[in-house]
Design a protein around this nucleic acid. Structure first.
Length: 209
DNA sequence: AGAATGATCCTCT
DNA sequence: GAGGATCATTCTC
């Protein structure tokens, strides 16, 4: 299980995001090993990006994003959910890739116990679902993605499928940037699609509030 | 299939 | 106090 090299992470975030598709994430805890393939990601790039949490500058909350590449940036949102990000670019430049969709490869019984859903493609087809299924929480913020607990590796074999892009989901200003990358038609891609009526509606309610 | 709603709580101000 | 890079459930057609 060979982790991605630092030279992989320390590049423009859009390149890293695009190439993270097909890579694998592995989480060890005790005897259990959970693994999956990344099928949907989003890039958040620098203080100039209005959707990036670092848009308002450095704070204890965003500090991990300013750190060296190859770390896990984990934060809490909407009362229930942890979000897992892959920190990119040089130390001091805040950028990260949000992991939104994962295709389960290993430890599926454990995921089912945690998630309690009827269909396997509901196990990990969304950012909050992934952290729940993999057992990732705020305790993991700032730890390395080169192990020992969490390891991100290159794809074991060539992964087929058409790669598509779209605007980012669930964000207000900046949503129009096509910085979401995913495998078209993969069942583990999250359900909320850019451009749907419900998505546009959520934008309106965000503005009203 | 699409739309609406409530859950629920960590982190910073 | 307020703000969320969401999810499951519960409706409606």
């Amino acid at each position: 299980m060979k982790p991605l090299a630092q030279s992989f992470d320390n590049r423009p975030t859009l390149e890293v995001a695009r190439e993270l598709l097909g890579c694998e994430i592995w989480v060890r805890q005790g005897n259990s090993l959970i693994g999956g393939r990344l099928v949907e990601v989003e890039a958040y790039v620098g203080e100039e990006d209005p959707s990036c949490h670092a848009h308002r500058g450095k704070s204890p909350k965003t500090e991990t994003m300013y750190g060296p590449p190859g770390m896990a940036f984990v934060y809490f949102t909407y009362g229930n959910h942890w979000m897992l990000n892959f920190v990119t670019e040089r130390k001091g430049f805040p950028a990260a890739v949000l992991i939104r969709g994962v295709e389960p490869l290993h430890g599926i019984a454990t995921m089912r116990n945690r998630r309690m859903v009827a269909r396997d493609h509901d196990l990990t087809n969304g950012p909050g679902k992934i952290t729940h299924a993999f057992g990732i929480t705020g305790r993991d913020n700032g730890i390395s993605l080169r192990g020992p607990r969490i390891v991100v590796t290159r794809a074991a074999a060539e992964v087929g499928g058409v790669i598509a892009t779209s605007g980012r989901i669930g964000v207000g200003e900046g949503h129009e940037r096509p910085w979401r990358f995913f495998y078209q038609d993969n069942p583990w891609v999250s359900k909320y699609r850019f451009g749907t009526k419900s998505y546009l509606k959520s934008l309106q309610s965000n503005r009203a509030a």
